[in-house]
């Protein structure tokens, strides 16, 4: 048991080491910007991971390139441009709004709108059903008439 535990610990440390690279940064701002970009840029190979999470060779290259660009004084905009020039807007997890990406940006609002419409329809139906229930209840006059009728029938039966 202890051996298994020790072994599993070993496995964990290996997995964690896989995406840790030791980059030296000239200052804290560069490190922050590096972290920001590796979170926001998507790995072109393993398409549902960002650069910080991916261990594919291309992600390693892009991280190295990112580190170089940051230290060469590229601005955020220039770095984004550099990446998009090579890998297309696909690498951005926050693509700019244009014809192709419009549906991505509008879809959440559209779905929310649909949901609101659905809720309104359901509530309206329920209210209408409630009103119907009320109108189906007999008014005082109608109730009297009904009792009379029933009584008349009962009497008629007695006579037979």
């Amino acid at each position: 048991m202890r051996l298994i535990l020790a072994l599993s610990l070993l496995l964990l440390s290996l997995m964690a080491a896989a995406v840790i690279e030791t980059y030296q940064f000239d200052n804290e701002v560069l490190r922050k910007r590096y972290q920001h970009f590796t979170e926001e840029l998507r790995c072109p190979k393993c398409q549902n991971q960002n650069l910080s999470g991916s261990n594919s060779p291309i992600a390693q290259d892009l991280r190295r390139e990112l580190h170089r660009l940051l230290h060469e004084g590229y601005s955020d905009q220039e770095i984004t441009h550099y990446m998009v020039e090579r890998y297309g807007e696909f690498v951005l997890y926050r693509p700019p709004v244009n014809k192709q990406t419009l549906i991505l940006w509008l879809a959440p609002a559209l779905f929310l709108l649909l949901a609101v419409i659905a809720v309104v329809i359901v509530i309206r139906k329920q209210m209408a059903a409630k009103l119907n229930d009320e109108s189906e209840q007999l008014s005082g006059l109608e109730q009297e008439k009904l009792t009379e009728l029933l009584n008349d029938r009962a009497k008629g039966r007695d006579h037979e």
Partner: peptide, 12 residues
Amino acid sequence: QGKLGLDLGVTG
């Protein structure tokens, strides 16, 4: 170094 690959947008 994979530099040309990077400029071409090679993913693998």
